[in-house]
Simulated assay, not measured.
Amino acid sequence: MRMLRTSPVRILGERDRAEVMALLDADPVGNVFVSSRLRTAGLDPGRLGAELWGYVERGRITALCYAGANLVPVNAGPDAIRHFAEHARWQGRRCSSIVGPIPAVEDLWARLTPYWGPARAIRARQPVLEISGPPLVEPDPLVRRVRVEELGVLVPACVAMFTEEVGVPPDSGDGGALYRARVEELVRTGRAFARIEEGRVVFKAEVGAVTPQVCQVQGVWVHPELRGRGHSLGGMAAVVRMALAEIAPRVTLYVNDYNAAARATYARVGFREVGAVMSVLF
């Protein structure tokens, strides 16, 4: 008689919160995105708009995989990745990217490539940077929080940044309604920063993920006509100063390894490299 195999992967819920958060808090910088989402929306898939998969060994959850618009493995070794890949393959691709620690994403993508490939782009190494003290350069005094009435100015800059970085516009599916709503949420919660002059965004950045320990900067952008003038240096220093004072005691971000100019800017501001991730984009 054939034995039925029980998968060690299960969809987690609120009853697992304490165990999940302890696992995420073991690496607050590396897990800031997933931790922020769960702290905001909870673990119930209906509210979260995603599933959180747990890999269970001897009754304990030892690895996670956030399965939403992004597929994000957490603390996942080879055995967990193998089972997460099987689950993802069975479910079918629902994500627009796979993001996480390089060994885990390399293994996961190798297992999924025959079924999900080819990828539109692969960012094989993206250094993770962190700063927890005052910036090393003078902040730009004209960088401030964006006001709600300035959404019409900010959104086009956000779309331009996203398209430049990812390679496709964020508003192609629904005319931009969801993306605009996300930008508006960041503005209303005081997490969108910019230097705006005469109705034009000179510099901008947002704080996307937030936990009590860490916040993550995203969307750093300088208007193409104004690059090379130091706006990103003073702008990032201003964002770091405000974020450390009012949002979280540590500020992190990740950057493409080939973006030498951005990496040099972040180093001058005072960021240090603390890890690296890999991204597979669809």
Rank of each mutant, 00 (worst) to 15 (best):
F84S: 02
A69H: 07
T62H: 09
A104W: 00
G92W: 14
I81H: 03
V56I: 10
V56G: 02
A80N: 08
S96K: 07
W109N: 05
L108M: 14
G100N: 04
G100K: 04
G68C: 13
R89T: 03
I102M: 14
R60V: 11
Y55P: 01
I61P: 03
E57K: 12
G92K: 10
R94Q: 11
V56W: 06
A104P: 02
R94N: 05
A69I: 07
E86S: 07
Y55H: 13
F84P: 00
V99A: 01
R93W: 07
P73D: 06
P78E: 14
A85V: 08
S97K: 10
V74D: 09
W53K: 03
V99F: 00
V105H: 01
L108F: 08
G68Y: 13
G92Q: 13
E57Q: 12
G59I: 09
I102G: 00
C95E: 14
H87G: 01
P101Y: 07
R58D: 14
S96D: 11
L71R: 04
G77P: 10
W90Y: 05
S96R: 05
Q91C: 09
E51A: 08
G68Q: 10
A85E: 04
L71V: 14
R94I: 06
N70F: 03
G77I: 10
V72K: 06
D107A: 15
D107L: 15
D79Y: 09
V72M: 15
R82P: 03
D107K: 06
E57W: 10
H87E: 13
L108H: 07
E106D: 15
G68K: 12
W90C: 02
A104N: 00
H83T: 00
E57I: 06
A67F: 03
R82M: 10
Y55F: 15
R93I: 08
W90Q: 08
V105K: 03
V72P: 01
T62Q: 09
W53Q: 04
P103Y: 08
G77W: 12
Y66D: 00
I98H: 00
G54A: 10
G100Q: 08
E57D: 12
R82I: 05
S97N: 15
C95W: 01
A104Y: 02
G68E: 12
A85D: 09
D79A: 14
I61R: 05
Q91N: 09
V56R: 11
F84A: 03
P73M: 11
G59Q: 10
A67G: 06
H83C: 08
Q91I: 02
G92Y: 13
H87K: 11
W90D: 08
L52K: 07
A88S: 13
S97P: 00
V56T: 11
V105P: 01
V74N: 03
L108A: 04
G100R: 04
R93T: 03
L108T: 04
D79K: 12
A67N: 13
V105E: 05
Y55W: 15
P101F: 02
V99I: 15
R82T: 08
A104D: 12
D79S: 11
C95I: 01
R82K: 08
W90F: 05
I98G: 00
H83G: 01
S96G: 14
I98W: 00
W53S: 04
I102F: 00
E86W: 03
R89H: 06
T62E: 15
C95L: 01
A80V: 07
P78N: 04
W109R: 06
E51R: 15
V99K: 03
C65H: 10
R89A: 11
A67H: 07
A67K: 08
L108I: 08
I61C: 13
A63W: 09
S96Y: 02
